[in-house]
């Protein structure tokens, strides 16, 4: 039996005393593609922030690569793409290269010392995502889809083993979304990167994910056999009928 790459054990979380997640248990194995879905306000983003250690659960433990997230130090194993609608300034006056490069961090002054290795990693990350031609463009000059690819390249610059993405396609049109999902599938299948994504895109979740996590009613229901879950089931979930969660396995 493999040690899960990520494990949440009896995790509960409250905002100002109001519980939003209760007794959440889930395991993510290496190579999984987990899509977290659920209605607005179901605490999907909160759950993701708990997973990466940005929020501390009131109760329970988060283990990542077998270590408690509180003591975890191997940050180069984790890639994170936050919601672009949040506090990130997408008009930030920096080039694509500078933004991707900024995430190559492995300690004070080490970015200077490992300059050649750093530059090689930035180039590779840009190529993986297919935006190497945009490297000298300013972030504010790019479309929503291109910006998200920059954030993906930024997360990939450290060669992570697991990628966390919080609603990455919310500002994209349909073709850009398709393109972005194909890229994620490719990273998951060909490079073996474990992917955890918060999404409202039910069709994508059913088609590409290997696990679906329904976040609803302060709980998370994991469907490991994605074949069981149809788009219709999940549409019910989004319409506040929890058909998908009726066939749940916690």
């Amino acid at each position: 039996m493999f040690t899960p790459i990520l494990e949440l054990i009896d995790v509960s979380f409250s905002y100002n005393g109001n519980p939003v997640l209760e007794n959440v248990n889930l395991k993510v194995e290496k190579g999984d593609f987990l899509a977290l879905i659920g209605p607005n306000g179901a605490a999907k983003t909160t759950l993701m922030k708990i997973m990466v250690g940005l929020l501390t659960p009131k109760y329970g433990r988060v283990l990542i690569f077998g270590e408690n997230i509180r003591e975890f130090k191997k940050w180069d194993k984790i890639g994170y793409i936050p919601q672009l609608t949040g506090e990130i300034n997408t008009g930030f006056p920096a080039t694509v290269w500078e933004i991707v490069d900024s995430n190559y961090y492995n300690g004070f002054l080490k970015g200077f010392i490992n300059k050649d290795r750093r530059e090689k990693s930035v180039k590779q990350a840009l190529e993986k995502v297919g935006i190497d031609k945009l490297s000298q463009k300013m972030l504010k000059e790019l479309s929503g889809g291109e910006k998200q690819k920059v954030f993906l390249a930024r997360a990939l610059v450290k060669n992570p083993e697991i990628l966390f993405l919080d609603e990455p396609t919310s500002a994209m049109d349909a073709p850009s979304r398709e393109d972005f999902y194909n890229l994620l599938t490719d990273l998951n299948k060909n490079l073996g990167i474990t992917v955890i994504i918060v999404t409202h895109d039910i069709g994508f979740a059913c088609e590409k994910a290997t696990k679906i996590g329904c976040v609803k009613g302060k709980r998370v229901f994991i469907h490991e056999n994605v074949g069981e879950v149809t788009e219709g089931h999940i549409a019910g979930l989004m319409g506040y009928k929890i058909a998908a969660c009726d066939i749940h396995k916690e």
Partner: peptide, 18 residues
Amino acid sequence: RELFAVTFDEESAKISGI
């Protein structure tokens, strides 16, 4: 490098170990 990362996106900077 630390200042750039924190100014641009504090949360991601935290996850980078800064």
